[in-house]
Design a protein around this nucleic acid. Sequence first.
DNA 1: CATTTTTTAGGGTATATACCCTAGAACTGC
DNA 2: GCAGTTCTAGGGTATATACCCTAAAAAATG
Lengths: 225, 225
Amino acid sequence: MAAGTREKIIEAARQLFNRLHYGNVTTAMLAEAAGISEGNLWYHFKTKRDLLEAITEDFLAFNAERMTYRPDPGDVLGSYVDYLGVLAGELRTYRFLYRDQADYGAHSDALQAKLPYIHEISLESFSAYFRAMKDAGLLDIEDEEIPDLSVNVVLVLRYTLEYLRESGKAETEGSGAVMGGIRQHLTLFSHRLTSAAKAELEARIGALARDGLKNRDACVINARK
Amino acid sequence: MAAGTREKIIEAARQLFNRLHYGNVTTAMLAEAAGISEGNLWYHFKTKRDLLEAITEDFLAFNAERMTYRPDPGDVLGSYVDYLGVLAGELRTYRFLYRDQADYGAHSDALQAKLPYIHEISLESFSAYFRAMKDAGLLDIEDEEIPDLSVNVVLVLRYTLEYLRESGKAETEGSGAVMGGIRQHLTLFSHRLTSAAKAELEARIGALARDGLKNRDACVINARK
DNA sequence: CATTTTTTAGGGTATATACCCTAGAACTGC
DNA sequence: GCAGTTCTAGGGTATATACCCTAAAAAATG
């Protein structure tokens, strides 16, 4: 039952940090959102920083799982959409860790130091998928254009939520905002895909929208196996 | 001398808010950065919110000027690069106003309400420039692809700085980060430009890099004429 | 059933920070 | 030269917030 409380606190914290930004969330808000007393919050987490570190551990486990994904030459598009789903889920679930470094930086310089590496690996992954698509004859692109396309893809996927928020549009969980970003990113290269590849990718992304993004629990469990 | 002090405070505040985020900047820091006593800060601005409103006024004047820019059929590419320079300068100079709504929102719900409109107009402007390029035979694109290209352009221009920061790369003023974003955004559509148009645009952007982005003072002065 | 763990309510401390106040010096303008 | 404005140093208040503490109830465990 105590383990359940700890997980409840972590989940409530993650949602509040994402919605209100790390620095704007007080410990009183955290306790209230978790449905516990503030004293109990301190019982489970000695400091706000300890709580952040618990979320960071989950994030790094999720992230380590994503790092194992590779293009499948037998099903390049399917593996790409799998990767998209995981990445998009991560960007949604752990959004504040990417966004609020200026706020939590003093609490977690270790994570702050690790994020650049994570971004770098994401770029390399996208480049790998686009090369695989090219090698499979699905994508008409020059090799030297791939790094820029990868940067653009990361920018669109990562910042669609921030853009919607700045634009006063719906971007909360459940609003379809992340799927919108996935669809938006397609506009970066769909005109370079073969017609069949484009249709298949759109179908797979449609299925992703129906089945929901890979949730973090599935991946964390996978990572721990 | 008092007007000079007020401007000095505004400029120091703007830079600190951009660098450290609105919520992380204390009034003691502001006074120190402006080279004045804290009491003097309160002499010039009754509240932190008053200071934010002064910066917001400058931002809205700058922004009103940008809103007057239109594609010039006689020089579509030149007018486009002019517009890029102004927009990029604005995104650099007033970055925290776009980014830190969650922090200053309680202080300036008026600006928070206005930003969506500003983003909308930016999108429409880019669409207008791309239609003008198409009409001039410079850009090979379908009409229905223009809105998505505009969104992608805004995402790349607006978030390159955030991406560099999250990636641990240089993004401070003077680092060339904004010009990097301008170059990056070219990769979204340069392959659709005629060779001549691409060469001309790259030359104009090169000149922009050499001459520096339009600074906010020039535009505010223009706006006040 | 005894022990341990979890939880609560409510009072509290320490520190941070926005902002205030004052006497008087320095500066500006007429 | 005087009145008004700007500015300083340093002391201060009010509020916010992270975190502490405690007695005791409730729940879990062995």
